[in-house]
Amino acid sequence: SHGLIQNRISGLEIDVAIFTNFTRDHLDYHKTMDEYKKAKFLLFEKFLNESEKEKKCSVINVDDSAGRELTKIAKGTVITYGIKSDADIKATDIEMLKNKTIFNVEISGKKIKIETKLIGRHNIYNILAAIGCAYSQNLDLEKVADGIKKFETVPGRFETVNAGQPFSVIIDYAHTPDALGNLIHAAKTIPLKQGKKIITVFGCGGDRDRSKRPLMGEIAGRMSDYTIITSDNPRSEKPELIALDVEVGLQRVKCKNYEIVLDRTAAVKKAVELCSPDDILLIAGKGHENYQIIENEKIPYNDKEVVIKILTEKYSRKNGKN
């Protein structure tokens, strides 16, 4: 959205523009949700219209209210997709399993079976968007389905970590209210044994939209069994003050199952200690990133490396290994 409002893609000849969803983000720059939406819509109203490509398409998620609004003004051929709404491309017969997702895609009177290692409803939407793009370019959709089946997960996006521990560890880049909710919801689709917990570790970035911090606290407090608030690129702000902003959200929903551990490595270690067999540990916010920004300094840090080291040390000792 920054690049759109700053005309940084001016001159690009666009074939396909895809609208996935509209949720709270970047308000430190755009100031209001309305301005943020206007910036996103520029891709479909202005830049796609200026493209000199002969065939231009807008692929739009109409389960999103902003997407439905966009269909009325988007340029080019409009192709819609969704799960709940009537759409040109629709996912049906959805089956979410522990290690894969299976569903049918209804398109042009046909049904195409999709099987993917990606987990969560948000990934179904992403796959529908990709199919919409492929369809707009007249690609063989059976070959597309085969490619989706072979596709591995993206580093830092619902990435599972296995170092011999008896519980699940998932690392994800989720750093907005919507993304954090999607992450925890996706984790809840994994069958849990009775009494088992979802433990979430996350923080909020400094010098960015403060208003999302309590919202993320509310989501973690409502959806997780236990939450650890920690640091995530505090930049020039004091980490303890950022954590207090997040804590407001947990208090709003009367959540008592949380604590604040500002040192991110210590927070991950504490979360590992809290996990029982078959629990799910979610480490959110940094994903693939390999740094922490504290004041003006980039300090090497990576969630995956940190948690693997903690797990290896703990479970190699338990197994009697040196």
Rank of each mutant, 00 (worst) to 15 (best):
H185T: 15
I260E: 01
K254Y: 15
Y135K: 12
D178K: 01
L43G: 05
V105E: 00
A129P: 13
R213V: 07
T265V: 04
C275W: 03
A129Y: 11
E289C: 09
K75F: 14
Y258D: 05
K117H: 08
F158T: 08
L4T: 02
R213H: 05
K269A: 15
S236P: 00
L244H: 05
L12K: 14
I310H: 10
N233V: 01
E240V: 13
F158L: 14
S108N: 14
A266N: 01
N162G: 08
L97Y: 15
L12T: 00
M223K: 15
V78K: 06
H175N: 12
F44V: 07
G109I: 08
G320L: 14
V248K: 15
K212H: 05
G147P: 01
T176G: 11
G82D: 09
K149T: 00
K309I: 06
S276Q: 15
K238V: 13
E35P: 00
I5M: 04
A271D: 10
M216C: 05
G217M: 12
V105N: 02
G320A: 08
I148S: 00
S276R: 09
D34M: 01
I310D: 09
E273Q: 14
C275R: 02
D146Y: 10
L250K: 05
E297V: 15
K193H: 13
A87K: 00
G221I: 15
N322Y: 13
Q292A: 01
Y258S: 07
I184K: 14
S224A: 13
G205Q: 05
K196P: 06
L244A: 12
R317D: 13
T101D: 02
T230I: 05
K117Y: 14
R157M: 13
R24I: 11
L250C: 03
I89W: 13
R222Y: 08
P191W: 00
K31P: 00
I310C: 15
I283R: 08
V248A: 07
V16M: 06
I89Q: 06
L311K: 06
Q292G: 03
I310A: 05
V59Q: 05
Y301D: 08
K269M: 08
A271Y: 03
R264P: 03
G164N: 07
N290L: 01
N302F: 09
V105I: 10
M223L: 13
R210C: 12
K100D: 14
E273R: 09
E45H: 11
R8K: 15
K149E: 15
I73W: 06
E95L: 14
K113Y: 01
N126V: 10
K40V: 02
T153M: 10
M33P: 00
K46W: 07
I229M: 01
E69P: 04
D207R: 03
Q292E: 06
C133K: 12
L180V: 12
I310Q: 04
D245C: 12
P239M: 09
A130F: 07
N99Y: 12
N322D: 02
G217V: 04
T101M: 07
S58W: 09
L250T: 08
N21D: 03
L70I: 02
A134G: 02
E115H: 08
E45C: 11
S136L: 07
V201W: 07
K31V: 02
K40S: 08
E13I: 03
L215P: 01
G249L: 10
H288S: 13
I171S: 04
I260T: 04
K75Y: 10
S168K: 12
D178L: 14
S316F: 07
R210I: 08
E106K: 00
V59L: 10
I14T: 12
D15P: 05
G181V: 04
P277Q: 02
